[in-house]
Simulated scan of single mutants.
Amino acid sequence: MKKSSLIITTIALASFAFGGAEAQAVVSSTHTSDNKINFTSGEGVVSPPVNPINPDNPDVPNPVDPTDPDNPGTGQDGPLSIDYVSNIKFGEHKITGKNIAYKAKNANPFVQVTDLRGASDGWSLSAKMSEFKSGNKVLRGATLAFKDGVVKAGSSSNISVAPTKSDILFDNTESKTVMNAKDKGGRGTWLTVWSGTDQANEAIQLNVVAGTPEANTEYTSSITWELADAPK
């Protein structure tokens, strides 16, 4: 019994001795080091189009819009740029005696904007459409609707405030707001994507009035997209 007590006592004293040595350690010297990084605006930077379905996916399909295969993007450089806009296709249809809403063939058409100014000033994207024409022939009364768009960041880790989007009805040549980034928002890359069924996308529809189409005629309209360096 005495032997056992002696061993236990020795261990306890050793532990106390080592613990006491650790407790007496003091800091003898300190110094600080600096870590620095400097940024300038993305002047001259070209931001390529991202995957509209999953912007974080680096394997961007080629082309990004299979219905619009010859569209590589605008090639505009920064620091504030429109990077990509889909050309909307409606295909070929037989003339009917009714008003018809034709659905876009594109499954995931989108518009992409990048702000690399680093100034948090905000921005606004607007658009206006010309009449559908073929030479001097006009598709009178035609309107084009973009609805149910979804705003996506080019990177899911982007902490900037997202721009807001608007449904659009092109019914004349007036400019319509598409996206609007308030002050301190919209930094980095942002998309509005109008996703729907491939070959029958209800998010984008061309409304044609009965009695206006002419046979064997392809009508074309242009949308002019305008990016301003301040919000609306």
Rank of each mutant, 00 (worst) to 15 (best):
N57I: 04
V60K: 02
V60F: 00
P63Y: 06
P52C: 11
P49D: 01
N71A: 09
T67I: 11
G73C: 11
G73W: 05
V64Y: 07
N71Y: 09
P52L: 03
V60N: 03
D59H: 04
N57K: 07
N54E: 09
I53P: 00
P55G: 07
D59K: 06
D70K: 14
N51P: 03
D68K: 02
S47C: 08
P55N: 03
P69G: 10
V60M: 03
P72L: 12
T67C: 12
N54W: 12
P72V: 10
N71M: 01
N51F: 00
V45R: 13
P58G: 03
G73T: 09
D56H: 12
T67R: 04
T67Y: 08
N51K: 03
D56W: 11
N54L: 14
D56R: 13
P61I: 12
P72F: 11
P66R: 10
V46M: 15
D59T: 10
D59L: 11
V50Y: 00
V64N: 04
I53M: 01
N62Q: 15
N71I: 08
P66N: 07
P72T: 14
V60A: 05
N62P: 07
N51Y: 05
I53K: 02
D68F: 00
P58Y: 01
N54R: 11
D70P: 09
N71G: 02
P48S: 12
P63G: 11
S47F: 03
G44V: 08
P61N: 05
P58A: 03
D65A: 13
D56N: 15
V46H: 10
D65E: 14
N62Y: 09
D68Q: 09
P63I: 05
P49N: 08
G73P: 02
S47D: 13
P69M: 08
P66A: 12
N54C: 12
I53H: 00
P66C: 08
P48A: 04
V60D: 00
D70A: 15
P52N: 08
P61R: 07
P52I: 03
S47G: 09
P72R: 13
V60Q: 02
I53S: 04
P49A: 06
N51G: 07
N71S: 07
D70L: 14
P61L: 11
D68A: 02
P69S: 09
P66Y: 09
D59V: 09
